[in-house]
Amino acid sequence: MITMEDIIRDGHPTLRKVAEEVTLPPSDEDKRILKSLLEYVKNSQNPEISEKYGLRPGIGLAAPQINVSKRMIAVHVHDEKGTLYSYALFNPKIVSHSVERAYLTSGEGCLSVDESIPGYVPRYARVTVKGFDIEGNEVKLRLRGLPAIVFQHEIDHLNGIMFYDHIDKQDPFKPIENAIPIER
């Protein structure tokens, strides 16, 4: 089971590396890691489990965050209609995206970043993501709103990009043109 001690913090060199593709079909070890990423995110959202193990709640986690520089992510999040998006993917990539942008009005956070970094993080409003599930089957997801933002945040981790890299340093709350504000 992944705990907060397993999650590396901002400044660790692995967080700035481009992660390697996972060889498919996935090895038992890669499957174990991918399962544990999703298990952490689910457990962290369960008040009893998160309190018992001291887990910080998260809605996504990428393998580089546990110091494994491989292209694996897990997301467990509900959209504004209450639909659950719960996926653990190998080699996810954004294959298309909207011109329109979106951002979280509350800003973004990250399990690898302990302090709050205020500011708007511009993202694509809609993305299509392709990846492979735990069994190595191709998955194609069309996402919008919060799930789209979470997938972009986690895929950024695979490319050594942190959410605050997107924030305008001079004016963190500068309005983002043609963007949909998303409350969370």
Rank of each mutant, 00 (worst) to 15 (best):
146 L>S: 02
78 H>F: 14
51 E>G: 09
154 E>M: 05
40 Y>Q: 13
56 R>K: 15
57 P>M: 10
81 K>I: 01
55 L>N: 06
168 D>Y: 03
151 F>G: 00
80 E>S: 15
71 R>M: 12
113 V>N: 10
62 A>I: 09
63 A>C: 13
69 S>D: 11
112 S>G: 06
68 V>Y: 05
19 A>C: 07
103 Y>Q: 12
114 D>E: 14
72 M>N: 09
21 E>C: 07
66 I>V: 15
115 E>A: 06
123 R>D: 01
163 F>H: 08
71 R>P: 04
128 T>A: 02
12 H>A: 15
153 H>M: 11
32 R>Y: 03
120 Y>D: 04
68 V>W: 03
116 S>A: 11
26 P>Q: 09
87 Y>A: 03
13 P>A: 03
75 V>A: 01
147 P>K: 01
30 D>E: 12
56 R>P: 00
180 I>N: 03
115 E>R: 12
44 S>V: 06
27 S>A: 07
75 V>Y: 06
86 S>K: 01
5 E>C: 01
11 G>C: 03
166 H>W: 15
110 C>Q: 08
58 G>W: 04
60 G>W: 12
147 P>N: 09
13 P>Q: 11
26 P>Y: 06
129 V>I: 09
3 T>C: 04
63 A>P: 12
139 V>G: 02
68 V>M: 07
48 E>M: 07
77 V>M: 01
59 I>Q: 09
142 R>A: 06
127 V>D: 06
40 Y>N: 09
84 L>A: 06
77 V>K: 07
104 L>M: 15
150 V>Q: 00
16 R>V: 08
111 L>P: 02
120 Y>T: 08
99 V>K: 14
92 P>A: 05
74 A>L: 02
20 E>C: 08
107 G>I: 11
24 L>A: 11
101 R>K: 15
26 P>F: 09
90 F>N: 08
25 P>K: 13
19 A>T: 05
108 E>Q: 09
13 P>D: 13
90 F>C: 07
12 H>I: 05
30 D>F: 00
62 A>C: 13
144 R>N: 06
140 K>T: 15
70 K>Y: 08
175 P>K: 14
168 D>E: 13
7 I>W: 10
36 S>W: 01
9 R>Y: 05
40 Y>M: 10
69 S>G: 11
126 R>V: 01
43 N>I: 00
29 E>R: 12
124 Y>P: 01
123 R>M: 03
65 Q>S: 11
75 V>I: 15
21 E>G: 03
126 R>G: 00
29 E>G: 05
83 T>A: 09
78 H>V: 03
128 T>N: 00
129 V>W: 00
138 E>G: 04
